[in-house]
Design a protein around this nucleic acid. Structure first.
Lengths: 298, 298
DNA sequence: TTGGATCGATAAGGCAGGCTTATGAACAAT
DNA sequence: ATTGTTCATAAGCCTGCCTTATCGATCCAA
């Protein structure tokens, strides 16, 4: 009446290998009657005879041999399952889906990927670059494991861990290099180039300048920091970029980089994940690795 | 502490499919707490989190997804095992290893094989032709499922079922056709050609003639009935062959066939198998089929 | 904000299934 | 015939699984 159990399959396998109830029971760390009982139970529930009991010999029946092959295969698969679990408990394995905002991605992403791959070669890293609202949505929907963005995310269901703080710097045409660095008020009078709507960095920059969303319409929008910097070098206006972008973005553009007077504008970049994530502990480790990757020179 | 159970894998699969403890429990025909408990037990014994419990949602973790794939595969294999058992209970399937003595094989074997294949196309029939002692040894050792030989086998561990009785007929050179049929005594004076040692038919023939093993040495030995008949047709002597061999053996040899006076010599051909054989019932069916095949004209 | 509904976790108790030891039965070997 | 081996059976105990009842958290609607 009872269904098959893994226990029965294990006992069956032991008996098929030993051909002897006593020894198979010993190998299975149970008493001989317990094994007899389970084998009998198994045969009855299947309605077939798996073994031929003879005077001095217990032998697999023809059907039993066919069974043995399949049972061994099943037990192997089950053991693999347990192995997989044990391996996963300790280190992060499998797929890791990381989301990252565009104003950080080009500068941090290569370092993250190479560092994670170095620490854990078995890891299947998948990156997704998009704006914060989409990252948060995909995170809560379970389509991402973690995201790197500007804190705070202000989502109670998400765990936040800061990675680093970074200042914003002013990007001006090269001929303005010697001009004094404008303060917030002076900045309002300049032609400020910003990222298109949706990017958190746009909002952060606007907030620094005390400019509202309405005023922003009059500004030029760019879809990436690279574009903005190129526009600056073409003399179209000025822009703000995060520190981390400086080395790469100034490489191919003739622009002047200036720091603001204190208090410098800045933002905090961090990593977030669902509090319910089963790999929360491993993600904490990942955060540490990302932090190191970010602090190292590009 | 407890190991994985198939039950847990089934519950896991149900929960992964429904994403809802209540419905998964219902589908598994148990109460919701029972399912909760087993899932919890499974996660704890594996030391990993398979599901993410959120407010209104139960979702597989990344690792859980990997598990789900493997678990489904395992459950499929287990179900196949049960299906295999059910299929085997009713009809004979798989491999059937039949042994048969050489003095019957050439005449009966083709009919047996074709009839068995007709009745049960899925059957993998393997024939082995050798002398009785070897057949009995292989049978008791489990290398054969059944054997067709002259009864009685006189092995208490074997089940015997008679197939048919057959007379022995005298084979003489064509020129002796008109001569009277010799009785046992007269046969002793003739040059009797017999099969080599080991064949039961040799012993049966000798026993009919009341000749001992010592006397037999002086006779010519042949390794097959065909050889014996050919030797008879060459005028070397006379021989006995079973009825069943007559149609085939006289087809290409110029010999005379004569029946003895009553009591005619005869033997009983039957089928034997281990009493402990798990396919005893099916073998009884096979015996019936073989019987029909034997009674039908060649 | 609050009451109700939903849903999973927890608690407590009962039953059964599986394990143990002890013993029986069949058979082989001496 | 007797003894040893080996598997089956019996009896009893205990663990583990399932049940119902209930809690706690969250979401939703009023």
């Amino acid at each position: 009446m009872n269904n098959l159990t893994l226990k029965q399959l294990r006992y069956f396998e032991a008996l098929s290998r030993h051909g002897h109830f006593g020894r198979a029971a010993e190998a299975s760390a149970i008493s001989q009657p317990a094994l007899s009982q389970q084998i009998k139970e198994m045969e009855e529930s299947l309605g077939i005879e798996l073994f031929e009991r003879q005077a001095r010999q217990v032998r697999l029946s023809t059907l039993g041999e066919e069974f043995a092959v399949r049972v061994r295969e099943i037990l192997r698969a089950v053991d693999e399952l347990v192995d997989l679990a044990r391996a996963s408990r300790d280190s992060l394995v499998g797929r890791l889906r990381i989301g990252i905002i565009p104003t950080v991605a080009p500068y941090l992403l290569p370092r993250i990927v190479s560092e994670l791959a170095r620490v854990n070669p078995a890891l299947d890293i998948r990156m997704r670059e998009t704006v914060t609202p989409k990252l948060l949505a995909e995170l809560t929907e379970g389509r991402l494991d973690t995201a790197i963005l500007a804190l705070p995310a202000s989502e109670p269901s998400l765990q936040e861990t800061p990675l680093f703080d970074e200042h914003f710097v002013l990007v001006r045409p090269l001929e303005d290099a010697e001009k004094p660095v404008p303060n917030r008020e002076a900045l309002k009078e300049m032609r400020l180039l910003l990222l298109e709507e949706g990017h958190c960095f746009r909002d952060q920059a606007l907030s620094f300048c005390n400019m509202g969303a309405t005023r922003a319409r009059e500004l030029m929008d760019g879809s990436s920091l690279s574009t903005l910097v190129q526009m600056v070098s073409a003399g179209i206006g000025v822009t703000l970029i995060p520190e981390i972008a400086v080395p790469i973005e100034t490489r191919s553009a003739a622009v002047s980089i200036s720091r603001f007077e204190a208090p410098q504008p800045s933002r905090r970049i961090g990593m977030v994940w669902r509090r319910t994530s089963p790999i929360a502990r491993q993600l904490q480790e990942v955060a540490k690795i990302v932090q190191q990757a970010a602090s190292r020179p590009a």
